[in-house]
Each structure stands twice: as structure tokens, then as C-alpha cells.
């Protein structure tokens, strides 16, 4: 192969690599929400009905993760106007009263959610 051909190919590869890397560079990213504004945390009622949460909580948590981490939208507003921070800690602030709250059902149904790959299970935290 001619030297000029080698140069062309090397140049092309480098160009593609630069382009590929630049696509992944952080371009602004998600803004950190004003968490103080969320504040309100009504511990007397859950964000949705018991029946809905029983069957759909994984959907909701997945949506929350997407909104908070990817969109920077950290405020959840319930249909009746209450606001909550989209965070697992919001759930656990009430539901970790019973440290086996998550585990009980998941074990019973043989479900292994991936939440606890990163987050601490209530059973793993100190009293």
C-alpha cells in the first residue's frame, strides 16, 4: 500500500475516534434540582393507592430514576397536589420503619430487583 493511503486511513480512523468520543462528552447534562423546594413530605399517606403501589411500584421507581437521573426532574406531584422528591429515600423515609418491608414480598415472590446492587437495603443499614 502507498504511504499516502496509510496516512489517509490513519487520518480517517483518528477522525472517527474524535467524533465518537466527542459524542459522549458531557454537554450541559442534567441540572441539579432545587431540592429545598420539594421539602414537603407528608408521611400520613403514600403517593398513590396501596393497590396501585403493590402492582406498579417498580414501574414508578423506574420512571423516577429516569426523570431524576436523566432529565433532572426531581419533583413528583400527585394528582391531589402534594409534592415529593423523586428519590428512593422518599419511599424509605416511611417504609423503612419496617426494615423487611421490601424484602418480605420480594422473597415471597422470588423476585430479585436490581435496586440493591447500588442502594443500601434497609436491612443493611444501622438502626
Amino acid at each position: 500500500m502507498k504511504p499516502s493511503g496509510v496516512l489517509m486511513i490513519t487520518g480517517g480512523i483518528v477522525l472517527v475516534m474524535i467524533l465518537a468520543v466527542s459524542m459522549f462528552s458531557p454537554g450541559g447534562g442534567a441540572e441539579t434540582a432545587d431540592r429545598a423546594a420539594v421539602a414537603e413530605r407528608d408521611s400520613t399517606a403514600c403517593i398513590a393507592s396501596k393497590e396501585y403501589m403493590r402492582s406498579h411500584h417498580m414501574k414508578l421507581l423506574d420512571q423516577w430514576r429516569h426523570d431524576a437521573v436523566r432529565e433532572g426532574d426531581r419533583i413528583h406531584e400527585t394528582p391531589d397536589g402534594r409534592t415529593f422528591e423523586k428519590s428512593l429515600n422518599t419511599c424509605l423515609s416511611c417504609h423503612s420503619q419496617n426494615r423487611f418491608f421490601c424484602v418480605m414480598c420480594h422473597q415471597y415472590a422470588n423476585v430479585e430487583p436490581t435496586c440493591w446492587n447500588c442502594h443500601l437495603l434497609p436491612t443493611e443499614t444501622k438502626e
Binding site: E51, R54, S55, H56, K59, C105, Y108, A109, V111
Partner: peptide
């Protein structure tokens, strides 16, 4: 659509 897995189990 999801159903309540506890009752199913």
C-alpha cells in the same frame, strides 16, 4: 398492565 404478584403467588 401489571397485576398484584402477591395474590398470584
Amino acid at each position: 398492565t401489571k397485576v398484584d404478584i402477591m395474590s398470584v403467588k
